[in-house]
Write a protein that binds this DNA or RNA. Structure first.
Length: 601
DNA sequence: TTAGGGTTAG
């Protein structure tokens, strides 16, 4: 390539390169451009052409030359400062060049300058400008900028274009405004597969999995055929609800239409199985993927193993991932450190934390520090955890202090617990979970007047306890139960089953763990309050409705309390059922009277 | 020479 370029123009002497005579520029530029058009496959060629231009004095400020260099750089994902330098030197760039710059930033790791560029755009934007720009807005999650751009779309008369509508729809969904996204969707005269996927994903992303599933069914009933993108959204909605049966049906469909070879869909499926606690199935998908696996597949499995309590296996897979020379991401390390903290592997945790920084040059994010605080705190090194927080390069957030408070509650460290609580009160004063944690800390020390004080403050501040709820899937339906739930049509049978459970557990030696109830109410009242926790109701419901030996899977929005944990261990033994509980931070696999967390959670 | 949608943590 360089030879071709060199032959176009011979400098007068190699030691003393001359600038290109003006009359040769158009010819050289044309040749360069022809070559640039074929260069979208190699950064190396781009560099050579750039060097050639400099050597022979072809000005990069020449619009024809500059815009192609920018286009090539953006297509090759060359860091944006390269394109930016050329761009700032071009005299009067055209719309294509502005668009290419906006696109480049939108696709880069730092999309914010795309919006700033648009604000300084000296030309009228065209139909290409807005999709690029909205992509940037979606990535920086700036709904106010998005709304402003929406009004510009309208002003420019582009609102009726399908592409632009889809961009707007996606922008609102990505910014958490799933209702605005749905509004756009509803009024679209023509809805293609991208529109359906975007609106379904908007719900799946924003904690509305049921709405996502409903729309999916509507899409299928209207004869629109799902593709790989649809499957990803569907499967992630299923994962949130732990709708395993539905996810399995989706897999059957994927195999039927050949989508099981789609990398993203397979990854989403793998994640679904991991999130349902069915690690063996996750493994099966992972094995089936073979060489198609990428870093996301490995990360999903590693995180899945870690949260399911298989810390050692998670680390083994990490080592294998390294052997296969896949580059772990910061999320991979969240999984690795999580595995260490939840399995009490303190030394390993520090080992991997160091390697992450030194070998992979990953700057620790808050989540990594959270794992480290948890690693120390769980292992009973509460003071060391506090010292770690003090030495952290980042300003500790509420999650960090909550982790410390949790460790203080488990290991009974009143002084530090109260201190962590004070920080939390400052950062997130209305978080009911923190009141509960503090109250549990006092209750475990029988300091009932302090427990009372916490409760009084909660009432005064108008903080309501987040109601606990549990989800179970039966047949094709997900059932939800809240504490003391009596609204279910099968309520009578459920409560009869609860009485039977109570009877059998007593015989097995069960003593209710009442210390964690948020008040010094009478013992008997406490017992009944515990017995109506949503997870126990959900278990009773499943015992009524499933055949002996069927595993029971439960998703809980809060942490499992000590009493439920003990009771479920015994239920798994007495009723001979495998019970998997996914709480807000991890999995518990109960079997034959034991839990996979080894009572360390 | 330019346009829209995807998975992993929290």
């Amino acid at each position: 390539m360089e030879d071709v370029l060199e032959s176009l123009h011979q400098p007068s002497s190699p030691q003393n390169p001359t600038t290109c005579p003006d009359n040769r520029i158009p010819y050289l530029v044309r040749k360069c451009i022809a070559l640039l058009q074929n260069c979208a496959s190699s950064k190396f060629k781009l560099k050579q052409i750039h060097a050639f231009s400099i050597r022979h004095g072809i000005p990069l400020t020449n619009l024809d030359m500059g815009k192609h260099l920018i286009y090539a750089a953006v297509s090759l994902s060359v860091p944006m400062n390269y394109a930016h330098n050329i761009f700032t030197n071009i005299q009067s760039p055209n719309v294509f060049t502005w668009n290419t710059m906006i696109r480049g930033y939108a696709e880069s790791e730092n999309p914010k300058p795309a919006i700033e560029l648009y604000n300084h755009m000296e030309l009228k934007p065209d139909t290409h400008t807005f999709p690029f720009l909205l992509k940037a807005v979606s990535k920086v999650v700036n709904v106010r900028a998005g709304e402003k751009i929406h009004s510009h779309v309208t002003k420019n008369g582009f609102e009726s274009l399908l592409f632009v509508q889809n961009s707007l729809l996606h922008m609102y969904a990505a910014c958490g405004r799933y209702e605005s996204a749905y509004n756009i969707f509803e009024f679209m005269p023509e809805k293609d597969i991208v529109a359906w996927n975007s609106v379904i994903n908007g719900f799946a992303l924003n904690g509305k999995p049921n709405e996502a599933l409903t729309l999916y069914k509507k899409m299928v009933s209207e004869g629109v055929e799902p593709d790989g993108f649809t499957m990803v959204s569907l499967l992630s909605a299923c994962a949130e609800l732990a709708a395993l049966a539905l996810g399995r049906r989706a897999y059957v469909y994927m195999v039927k239409v050949g989508l099981n070879t789609n990398l993203h869909s397979s990854n989403a499926l793998l994640d679904l199985y991991a999130k349902c606690g069915t690690i063996s199935e996750a493994h099966k998908i992972f094995d089936e993927m073979g060489t198609r696996r990428n870093a996301v597949s490995w990360t999903s499995l590693i995180v899945g193993l870690a949260v399911n309590g298989f810390g050692k296996e998670a680390l083994d897979h990490f080592k294998e991932m390294e052997r296969e020379e896949l580059v772990p991401s910061e999320i991979t390390f969240v999984g690795v450190l999580y595995a260490c903290s939840h399995c009490g592997m303190v030394n390993e945790g520090f080992h991997y934390f160091r390697r992450m920084k030194e070998e992979y040059e990953i700057v620790p994010i808050m989540e990594h520090h959270g794992c480290m605080v948890d690693l120390l705190g769980r292992a009973g090194l509460v003071k060391e955890a506090y010292e770690y927080i003090q030495d952290m390069p980042l300003q500790p957030n509420a999650v960090i202090w909550r982790t410390l408070l949790g460790a203080c509650t488990i290991h009974g460290h009143l002084g530090l617990g109260a201190f962590a609580r004070a920080q939390l009160l400052h950062l997130e004063p209305k978080e009911s979970g923190d009141y509960v944690l503090l109250s549990n800390l006092y209750a475990s020390e029988q300091r009932w007047s302090d427990v009372h004080e916490v409760r009084r403050r909660m009432l005064n501040e108008g903080v309501r306890k987040t109601p606990g709820h549990s989800l179970v899937e039966l047949g094709n339906q997900v059932h939800e139960f809240v504490m003391g739930d009596k609204t279910h049509p099968q309520s009578k049978a459920i409560y009869e089953m609860l009485v039977e459970i109570a009877k059998k557990l007593r015989l097995a030696g069960y003593v209710p763990q009442t210390a964690n109830v948020l008040a010094d109410i009478e013992e008997e009242e406490k017992e009944s309050a515990l017995f109506y926790h949503s997870e126990k109701i959900a278990i009773a419901f499943m015992l009524v409705n499933t055949l002996p030996g069927t595993p029971i899977r439960i998703i809980k929005n809060l942490r499992v309390c000590a009493d439920c944990h003990l009771a479920i261990k015994l239920i798994s033994k007495v009723f001979e059922r495998e019970i998997v509980v996914r709480d807000c931070s991890r999995f518990h696999h109960f079997r034959d009277g034991y839990c996979s967390c080894k009572d360390y959670w």
